[in-house]
Design a binder for these strands. Structure first.
Lengths: 202, 202, 202, 202
DNA sequence: CATGAATGAGGGTTCATTCAT
DNA sequence: CATGAATGAACCCTCATTCAT
């Protein structure tokens, strides 16, 4: 009964395809990405991809969801309860900076789906954005319970936190800054957010 | 000597093509956009586009530059010397919000080029990003001269200002918020930035 | 104003494509037929076919209709009023035999659509069959008016005339008989039909 | 020595595959038919088919031969010596009508191979056609011996009998007539044939 | 200059066939 | 013997680009 092993094999292949797909999609975008090239890089035949995914679009969406899961896990860990709000914000910033560096393919694909113009994926990307905002919102509510902040519009605040963190790192990367340089901005950005949401953002 | 009139005609056609191209590119993305459809919408023959632009890629880049010029002009106006830093930041935010609403095609195309994954356009997009940061940096230096702020790293601060402003609006739009709701955040966001860069961002 | 010439050119190309398509479809069947090969044989580029026909299926149907028009014209001419019923039946037989020989591609394609199993074309093929039966039925009615025959069920009789004529020639061709040999059966077959429908077929 | 049982099992599986193949081929034609679907319907694995048949083409041909055997058996029974020529012709017609109704899959596949355009199967189909003509020819010779008819060209006459019978039923089916309606034409068609071949077909 | 008919490279997808288990 | 996961050849169709008019 090699069922379990086969199942593991299958899942491993699935992951390998998605990893190579992320690389290809990140480099070329959805349309220019070549299924054949993805298959070659994954070390499998062209037709084999269709044993794991319905079609190119399905592969992209599954990959996107997989990426989002990983990123959400990392973010949740960064926002874990220990520490002050400032510490949690700094951890969030560094977590994003790390994702952008270590899993830059995934980071780019996710950003592209979110802010790119390919409407075919906007619905899914929006769902993922909501998840991110929700996780940050949860943390902010805890902080409010603790009396660390006082906000009337948690969602708007959460969006602001996410936007600033994410976009800062994205822009910095576009401008060619290294992870080291970027990470040094964790403190200042957290400080900025803290002061900002302390009283003003209603 | 109908040279001037011809020149004007030629430029008018060029502009018309780029406008329709922006609409098509914003709606479908670079790859899905159809040269034939752009030509039709511009009221010219398919082949005529190639009398004005080298190829599809060239059309996209020229259009991108044209959009950036317009946006930079709007931003420069918003950051004009009159008023306090807070007022200028609020004007910047509202200017972006307005661009996102009134010229959503252009805004989307620009954002997509910047944060999208098609590396073919990343070099150009980066150039444009530098222009934006430079304009904001210029204003920040003026504010520093006036004593409104005190920053050791103008570029990082400028990037933060741009990131927060731009990304907030972008995310809010993705989540379906109206311009009215977004514009109401001009004050809070400016306040956040002000407090943030007041002392902490070094 | 080269409009008319262009129109003629266009129609000529359309005909050339359909002729080559008939050859390819007759040789290989719908599925095995290769659009690329058809284009090559028609002396045009692969993509050009799609300027004249929506898709492969559309090409096949248009070709089928075109073939049917030609065959119907030939049949109508054969059944023209001059002569006795016997003469008209013999002309019909010879007309079919000639079509089977001179335009064997067309003949085969038409037969294949009619009696083949590709349901995608059965509706259209049935329409064509009805046309054939109607034309023969018309002639039979004339003969009835003239008192040459006396039939209670014209449609059944027409179907019988068509079946026998068509199928005899088809089978004879499958068995490798030459047109010469086949045509010699025109008299006997007509005689058979005449005797048959004279009184018995009600 | 389970050899015999195994052999029986093997033959049973072979038959099951061919039966399902006939259904699939009749419904979709050779090219559109799907080996995987046939395997599923036969309750075996995809690869197993290749233990019984060389390839798709071989499966089709074997199935075709199998069908022809059944049909020939039915035809031979219909043409058995008892009864007058008229009765035998009527039995032949009814036998075909019955085959077309009760074993429509097989009937359609056979007709399609015979009159279809896929030349890959024409050689085999021709062989089968010869068998049919031979069987009918045999009966005609008996009738000639009995003095029921007088024909100089038995083969042509046999072909005519087959053509008229087969093609009438086929056309009637294409036009949507029920078996009941079709069977009622057994008498008239037999009469037609009888009169026709009585003296005229030489 | 303007046009649009013609082109053909390119790619997603299917499916008959193979072969390791 | 039986299986079905893996393979890759094959093909329709799109669309950016060219060029004769």
């Amino acid at each position: 009964m090699p069922k379990i092993v086969d199942e593991q094999m299958r899942e491993a292949t699935r992951q390998r395809i998605m990893r190579q797909a992320a690389s290809e999609f990140a480099r070329l975008g959805f349309d220019q990405a070549n299924i054949n090239a993805i298959a070659e890089q994954a070390g499998i035949g062209k037709g084999t991809i269709y044993l794991y995914f319905e079609n190119k679009r399905d592969l992209f969406l599954e990959m996107l969801r997989s990426i989002a899961q990983v990123q959400l896990t990392v973010i949740r860990a960064a926002l874990a309860q220990e520490g002050t709000l400032r510490q949690r914000l700094e951890r969030l910033f560094r977590a994003f900076a790390h994702l952008a560096e270590e899993e830059s393919d995934n980071f780019n694909v996710y950003m592209s789906a979110l802010y790119g113009v390919n409407r075919a994926f906007q619905a899914e990307a929006t769902k993922l954005l909501r998840d991110y905002v929700a996780v940050i919102g949860l943390m902010l509510e805890q902080s409010q319970t603790r009396g660390e902040i006082h906000s009337h519009n948690i969602e708007a605040t959460a969006l602001m936190v996410l936007s600033l963190t994410e976009s800062y790192i994205l822009s910095a990367k576009v401008l060619g800054q290294s992870e080291l340089v970027i990470v040094q901005q964790a403190g200042p950005v957290a400080e900025l957010i803290l002061r900002g949401i302390g009283t003003s953002v209603s």
